[in-house]
Amino acid sequence: MKFFRLISIVEGISLVTLLFVAMPLRTYADMPLAVTYVGWVHGILFIVYGATSLIASHLSGWPVWKWLLVLFLGVVPFGFLYVDHLIRREIPNASAARTA
């Protein structure tokens, strides 16, 4: 679950970078390669995010709607912050279940 949390944060930062740094650079500074490079990185990270979200949902026993919500939040700017909140809320429950 910690790996999925890390991937979620990195993918979210790449989306925000693409939308709020690379795209304005392309439009206002005539630097189209910014979108090309950041877009490639973001695309690869989103594929990894989708795969790890599926694995995390299976290991955590999430219902399908929760997995779809987490997957949808991967394309929403700053949605990764809510996903991080969901994961952090779930981690203490998992550690408490192991100690009991």
Rank of each mutant, 00 (worst) to 15 (best):
R88W: 05
L15W: 06
T52H: 06
F3E: 09
G43W: 03
L68H: 10
A94T: 11
Y82E: 12
A100W: 06
L81S: 06
I55F: 09
L69P: 00
H58R: 15
L81Q: 10
A34W: 09
M31V: 11
L59G: 10
V83F: 01
A29K: 00
A97V: 14
G50H: 11
D84P: 00
R98P: 12
A22Y: 06
V10F: 04
L68D: 06
R88N: 14
I55D: 10
L6M: 11
L6D: 09
A97H: 11
V16Q: 03
G74N: 05
K66H: 09
A100H: 07
W67E: 06
S95W: 10
L71A: 15
V48N: 04
G39Q: 07
A22P: 04
Y49M: 07
V83D: 04
I7D: 03
G43R: 04
A56K: 00
L86E: 12
G39R: 04
L81T: 13
G43M: 09
L81R: 08
G12K: 06
V38K: 02
V21Q: 08
S53C: 15
F46K: 00
L73I: 08
W62R: 07
A56V: 04
E11G: 05
L86A: 03
L73G: 05
V75Q: 02
L86W: 03
V83I: 15
R89C: 10
P77S: 07
F4C: 08
M31D: 08
F46M: 10
T27Y: 12
T17P: 07
I44Q: 01
Y82M: 15
L15P: 00
H58N: 07
L71M: 14
K66Q: 14
V70F: 04
A34T: 01
R98I: 15
P32W: 01
V16R: 00
T36K: 05
I55Q: 08
Y28N: 09
V75H: 00
L54K: 12
R88D: 04
A96E: 14
S60I: 02
V64G: 01
S95N: 11
S53Q: 12
W62Q: 05
G43I: 08
K2F: 12
T17C: 11
S14K: 01
L19M: 13
A96D: 14
L68K: 12
H58D: 14
V41S: 10
N93F: 15
A96W: 13
F20S: 01
D30C: 03
F72W: 14
T36L: 09
P63T: 13
H58F: 04
M23Y: 07
P32Y: 02
T52L: 10
S8V: 12
V41I: 13
A22F: 05
G79K: 10
L45E: 02
W67V: 12
A29T: 08
V75K: 02
V38F: 10
M31C: 01
L45V: 14
L25F: 13
L33S: 13
H42F: 06
L69Y: 02
P63S: 14
G74A: 04
D84F: 05
T36A: 09
H58G: 13
L68R: 08
W67A: 09
Y37M: 08
L15D: 00
T52C: 05
L68Y: 12
P63R: 03
F20M: 13
L54P: 00
A29S: 09
M1C: 08
I44K: 02
V70L: 03
Y82A: 15
P77I: 01
R5A: 10
S14N: 02
F46Q: 04
